[in-house]
Design a protein around this nucleic acid. Sequence first.
DNA 1: TAGTTTTCTATCAGGCTGATACTGTATCCA
DNA 2: TGGATACAGTATCAGCCTGATAGAAAACTA
Lengths: 402, 402
Amino acid sequence: MPGPTSSTANAGTVSRVNQTAILDVLRQHGPLSRQEIGARTGLSAATVTRLAAQLQRKGLIVADGHQPSTGGRPSILLRYSGRGNLVSVVHVGATRTEGALVDFDGVIVHRVQRPVVPDVLHAADRATIRLEEALSVAAELGAAADGRGQPSQAVGVAVPGVVDGADGRVTWAPALDWREVPVGSLLHDRTGLPVVVENDANVLAVGEHRRGAGQGVQDLVAVVLGTGIGVGIVTGGRLHRGSRAAAGEIGYMLLERSSLARLFPGFGDLESRVGSAGLTRQARERGIAAPADRPLTAADVFDLVRGGSGEARALLEETLDYVALAVANLCTVLDPELVIVGGEMGGAADLITPGLRDRLVGRIPHVPRLAASALGEDAAIVGAAELAARLVSDSAYVQATR
Amino acid sequence: MPGPTSSTANAGTVSRVNQTAILDVLRQHGPLSRQEIGARTGLSAATVTRLAAQLQRKGLIVADGHQPSTGGRPSILLRYSGRGNLVSVVHVGATRTEGALVDFDGVIVHRVQRPVVPDVLHAADRATIRLEEALSVAAELGAAADGRGQPSQAVGVAVPGVVDGADGRVTWAPALDWREVPVGSLLHDRTGLPVVVENDANVLAVGEHRRGAGQGVQDLVAVVLGTGIGVGIVTGGRLHRGSRAAAGEIGYMLLERSSLARLFPGFGDLESRVGSAGLTRQARERGIAAPADRPLTAADVFDLVRGGSGEARALLEETLDYVALAVANLCTVLDPELVIVGGEMGGAADLITPGLRDRLVGRIPHVPRLAASALGEDAAIVGAAELAARLVSDSAYVQATR
DNA sequence: TAGTTTTCTATCAGGCTGATACTGTATCCA
DNA sequence: TGGATACAGTATCAGCCTGATAGAAAACTA
């Protein structure tokens, strides 16, 4: 039974679309009067009044003072709710699990940190441990939200791996040793809330798109350089996930002809050059002092460069070369308006973006704008919160337009 | 004045969306009864009847016989119109201009060919000559359609270059020496019809997506290997154009670190390896007999390989290596479900796809399906016709969802 | 021919938008 | 102080659309 394939509409759809339009315009332009909302959306004043009343009942917008009169009745400003609506976010990173309560304005109001003890990172049962940890963080967040009298309305989960979007199943997350882990349904069963699970690079891109350096941009790419390398892609204002949710896994990009003579079973060509493991190996070959207890990261290399190490400088240049090749290639494919450098590298963007730009100019036809992450370490959390909030405020619309 | 940014809906939008749903389901599944349309779309029988009546009045669908009774009143089959509705298509290629009248079923009912005399290909005023040629082909097609009593309802133009979609302006088409040529508005002024201008790789992708090897697939890439190399990208069932309409210009992909030491002002790295000019140069170096009067194309290489030339075989393998690198890279970025090999190479797909697959397996995590173009030389024309037809049948919907 | 089955259609209630008229609240000016 | 004026927001209603229901149409079956 194939079921209805095409998406159809009815009067309810119209209402939801228009409510979303009002929310969008309020989110984008701040507090507005009903009149201004009508002018910007094209909706009639009567319709704005009625829909605004509904949104106020839902708690998604609130009246926020008056505007001084210009000779007539002063207008009442309406503001997107934000405060008062919370979602829980769990970011399961390679080395720690972070939790946060985030309001609909993208403001983090409560945090939970669970650093992973090093022993666990390579334990045989680390998959189970990390999963239980994620579930307990979610539970803790739910309790904290209840304690504030603002129960969490949805859960967003960010994971360093491939996620099947439909049911929130993590297909494969090497850093966590998760294979086919149904985080989404587990969390839904325990919390009773709608849950969205998404790749960490993807949520970072969403976060920057909605609340960070990419606001107002319709086509952007967020490059996340950390343990590995990945990108999150927003095209036409929407997240691009690919047919198997593996879009942006550029760690497997092939960067020279000779790479065709090798196989890359669990580790990609690009990743082996710029990822943590590759950097550690190369640092060793170059005689750079690497930390003994953990692999070298790109962030370490930047620190060494700032410390004046010539060897590290050379390694950085080589790394930048390969990152530039990857960015150049994805720009030729996607033609984004903006490329955001995020992840652990966000803080070192001053070292990266100029080097990247120099390498791109004159080699690809349209060099996009390059920018550092504006949200820094919180980009993934804010993005996951955004996706979770959308489950609540625009749920029907999202489903209808899928 | 920014004007309304968000898109809103009203009762008319609902009707258009649902009409589009009916058209889609008919295009995809062939003739259906009103009952079946209702079942597949989720629309009520009454709504289907009413919308179908409107679509019949517009000439977009027609009754097409009865289905044998299963015990009750036999159902009347409705079919997407196709015949009876024509659009004009002009494909301005590197070496010739092709015109066609295409019905809404994607069937080419009339053709016009204008081979370019070799002298023109390098004439100083070839831009003007090719433009006049395109306009005259369009005029000829319009007259032919009028002669059939079925006036052309829109014009689609396919161009080997970058096109600004909004007003149909060709920003840069090296093969034609067109810079900032407003083909769209010129044609609109002369014909009074809606006009869509699009890159040839993009329309090829659309053609294969709607009528060829990519039917039913939501994420695909069409690789066009001809004078240069480019791809058309469909994501989520829609054409991906990029922020400057330069998406898919993978001729500029960088394929080794040393490429960063060079500049590629008007000619990309990948293109210099697998494009016509690059092949010609390499053939000369390898002592392969190349045609004297024109550059060697990939198609020529294939002919030589079929003829048993070992030198050509080696050149082919090298070419395939670089094409495989490019396809691997765009797969890591986009994660398409299907990659279609089209353009002049469509006929040689039997030589290409196995070689490509061998090179991808084990090197990127998800090897997509690989397929030859199903529409062959006509893919671009059919795709441009599809876009033009959509201007007519779904105009409001397309604008609303932009 | 009468009954059954299935398809299609006419009619109507209900939801939504937008136009219009109206109310509410301020400023301006005599 | 009080009326005129101006602007914001709201109530009312027509018009459009969908979906439910009942009915008409067109076949088959006995």
